[in-house]
Design a binder for these strands. Structure first.
Length: 465
RNA sequence: GGCGGCAUAGCCAAGUGGUAAGGCAGAGGCCUGCAAAGCCUUUAUACCACGGUUCGAAUCCGUGUGCCGCCUCCA
């Protein structure tokens, strides 16, 4: 069964065929490290991580490259406003970014090239474009001449005429030092506002435009032609369109086979905006006491091309769903003896999971399959038919699917303090002697302290709330 | 003004022509000394509205309404 991806280039689902068999090169637009990333950003990174994990699960050796934008207008403004150096600021937010993705269980990419470490590569690329006649210079800056690339606009379905007019009047050509308002900068000449953020290069004193870093770095780490490029839908135009123009014109080779874009995140039914008071960084949510795994669940559970509504109710529901999974695993781990091995059930569940995920990463359908499986296995356990081999098979399957989703192995509190166990034993003794009021008092007290006591035929189970 | 997306139960969310997955919450029940967990039953004559195509539409087409995105380096 082939994997289908919705390719923005063709606006249709296409079979994924890798350039090299069983290998996949993947480039994803990373953060501008001038601030803490917000949960909308993390939805995109989570989606990209899912693409990478799923391809890995399906046997591909994936090379995942994510850039860090560490020179750009907003960063320079921050430098000016704070008096700090570019490096000070970017080092701080890069560290925060890595902490955040670790917290969310997003796998680290194979490399995180930073723009400022690749100035020579960008200069070479711009030179190549200049030699081929795709650029022009104005006041020391170098621009890409879009008329030299007739295919421009194919990804976003924008046409040059519409862009030129800018009917709302928002595109004011006077503000551009370019022949056409729609042309974009490859190299920006230094001006006083830039302070000490500049490089002396063959192109003059200045800094790279934003788009060129992704062309230069994807090329360096994945070659001129690679499989997958992902990003948020807002990057489609102009950023990805510009990347295509730069890369194709510079190398003459095809650039990217599959463009995957993820939709935006809404918060409580509204767009996320500081003015609406629903703008959250991951740190904001953790400070409110939300469980990172529940945040992960919430962000991952909606199909990536669907606008997703992040709400506190949804996170609470996710916590409950995770508890269900955790309790299911605890139950399985306690099973001993002979019984059903559940081989067919495991095979069916895995097949259904894969069939859904193969269809453009239909995660909701895939999760539905697993929850149906959990219910069916629970029923069999209730009937007493499941043996330890069956339990192991189910746990193995969950572990495997956890490699894709990261939500099927919630942490279990396995060290219960001696003192708590003593009180559980005391309660059990009271129960045996039918002193139920006393037993219930102990249970209530432990519940207050965050421990749930459950009575099973085989004894007491102690769990974290 | 141009281009694009979305609208499914209280909440989250699959399903893109054949009669509404799943999770959370709610109700009733089984189990339990009582609970918890689990299981069973139940919760959308129905998928924003109105037209149309079709034997048949949440699914296709049209119009409208609402929300969201891009068109200035915001995922």
């Amino acid at each position: 069964m082939p994997i289908l991806f919705y390719n923005t280039l063709t606006r249709s689902k296409e079979e994924f065929n890798a350039i090299k068999p069983n290998e996949a090169g993947m480039y994803t637009c990373g953060p501008t490290i001038y601030n803490y990333a917000h949960i909308g950003n993390f939805r995109a990174y989570m989606f990209e991580d899912l693409v990478r994990r799923y391809l890995t699960f399906r046997g591909y050796k994936v090379t995942h490259i994510m850039n860090l934008t560490d020179v750009e207008d907003k960063l320079i403004r921050t430098c000016r406003e704070t008096g700090k150096s570019l490096k000070e600021i970017t080092a701080h937010y890069a560290r925060a970014f890595f902490e955040d993705i670790d917290t969310l269980g997003i796998w680290r990419a194979d490399a995180y090239p930073a723009a400022t470490d690749h100035i020579p590569e960008m200069v070479d690329l711009i030179k190549a474009l200049r030699e081929k006649g795709h650029t022009y210079e104005e006041k020391g800056s170098i621009y890409f001449n879009l008329t030299t690339f007739p295919k421009y606009g194919r990804l976003s379905h924008m046409n040059l005429e519409d862009l030129k007019t800018g009917a709302s009047g928002r595109v004011d050509a006077d503000e551009y030092e370019a022949e056409e308002a729609r042309d974009f900068a490859l190299w920006k000449a230094w001006d006083e506002q830039d302070g000490d953020v500049y490089w002396e290069t063959e192109l003059g004193k200045g800094r790279p435009g934003w788009h060129i870093e992704c062309s230069a770095m994807s090329m360096k780490y994945l070659g001129p032609h690679f499989d997958i490029h992902c990003g948020g839908i807002d990057n489609m135009f102009p950023h990805h369109e510009n990347e295509i123009a730069q890369s194709c014109c510079a190398t003459g080779a095809p650039f990217v086979n599959y463009w995957l874009h993820c939709a935006h995140l809404m918060v409580e039914g509204r767009k996320m905006a500081k003015s609406l008071g629903n703008f959250y960084t991951l740190r904001d949510l953790l400070a409110k006491g939300l469980d990172p795994l529940a945040i992960r669940y919430t962000l991952i559970a909606t199909h990536y091309r669907q606008p997703s509504n992040f709400s506190f109710d949804a996170v609470a529901a996710a916590s409950q769903a995770l508890r269900r999974i955790r309790d299911f695993r605890i139950r399985l781990e306690e099973i001993h003896g002979e019984g059903d091995e559940l081989l067919q059930e495991c095979r069916d569940c895995e097949a259904e999971f894969i069939a859904n995920m193969d269809d453009d990463l239909n995660i909701s359908g895939a999760l539905g399959a697993v929850f149906n499986f959990i219910r069916d296995v629970n029923r069999k356990i209730d009937d007493g038919g499941v043996g330890s081999a069956g339990a192991i098979h189910v746990l193995d399957l969950l572990d495997q699917l956890n490699q894709v989703t990261g939500i099927f192995a919630p942490p279990v509190e396995d060290t219960v303090p001696r003192e708590v166990l003593d009180r559980v034993a005391a309660r059990q003794q009271a129960r045996r002697e039918k002193r139920f009021a006393e037993a219930d008092a102990i249970r209530d007290q432990l519940l207050n302290e965050g421990w749930i006591i459950e009575d099973t035929p085989d004894g007491q189970r102690v769990k974290r709330v």
